Amino acid sequence: MNTRKLGLLALLAAFIVAVLVWLPRDWLSLSAVQQSHATSVSWYHAHPQLACVAYFLIYVLVTALSIPGATLITLLGGAVLPFWLAVVIVSFASTTGALLAMLVSRYLLADWVSQRFPAQMRRVNDGIARDGAFYLFALRMMPLFPFFLVNLLAGVTRLSLWRYWWVSQLGMLPATLIYLNAGRQLSQLHSLADILSGGMLFAFALIGLLPLISRRLLGHFLHR
């Protein structure tokens, strides 16, 4: 690894540490988000445009740096912003953050990712080589790998930036809609487990597998 890459990695690591130190210790809790609800609503009504820009940038930062808390921020957005405005902001912010994380993986962390996650890397490389964007869509819909790990692994594949962008945008949209809708009843939530039931996760898995199954069946039919 050259000196330039080492310098960029050191700068990125220092920035992540600074962000984690600056954040309040209890911000990664449902109760903290619920307590900030009224203040956030007041700030949004007083400065709607500034609030939207700040929310977008914070969301991008959290997802790009793989800082835990994106789910809670999504819930807060659903509770504060008009629903469809929140859908647009969260959808593009989450995809932008995922793209930035993927670029960091591709240009700075490729060797580390390959050595740290060899089994997952082989599986993703095989899936991308076999099914292309359909496999990435399935990863986004099904909880096979955590969100941040999909970003890191995709960076070491040959996926183009444009394909990664639009597939991630589409694949993350259903969960975005569900969490934003749950945020509208933020005060009534007792835990994050109240949002996604086992049946809903199973439905996500079926949706994610459908393009793969269709592609396999079509390929088998054309081969015959």
Rank of each mutant, 00 (worst) to 15 (best):
N181A: 15
T157H: 07
R116I: 03
G171S: 11
P118M: 08
L149R: 07
V150W: 00
S105L: 07
F117V: 01
S160E: 11
L206A: 10
G132L: 08
R116Y: 09
S91V: 03
F202V: 12
S94F: 03
F147Y: 15
T176A: 09
F137M: 11
M142R: 00
T95M: 14
D111R: 14
Y135K: 06
R116D: 02
L192Q: 10
A110I: 00
A133P: 02
I128K: 01
V113W: 07
R116V: 04
A98W: 01
I195Y: 05
V87W: 09
Q120R: 15
G78L: 12
W165N: 09
S91C: 09
W166Q: 05
V87D: 05
V80N: 06
P82N: 09
F83Y: 15
L109F: 13
G155C: 11
H190L: 10
F134Q: 04
P146C: 09
F117I: 02
G155N: 02
V150F: 01
W112I: 05
A86P: 06
W84L: 15
A129N: 13
A93Y: 04
P118W: 08
F83G: 11
S191K: 12
L136W: 09
F117G: 00
W165V: 01
L136C: 05
A93S: 14
P82E: 10
G77P: 06
G132I: 09
R140F: 00
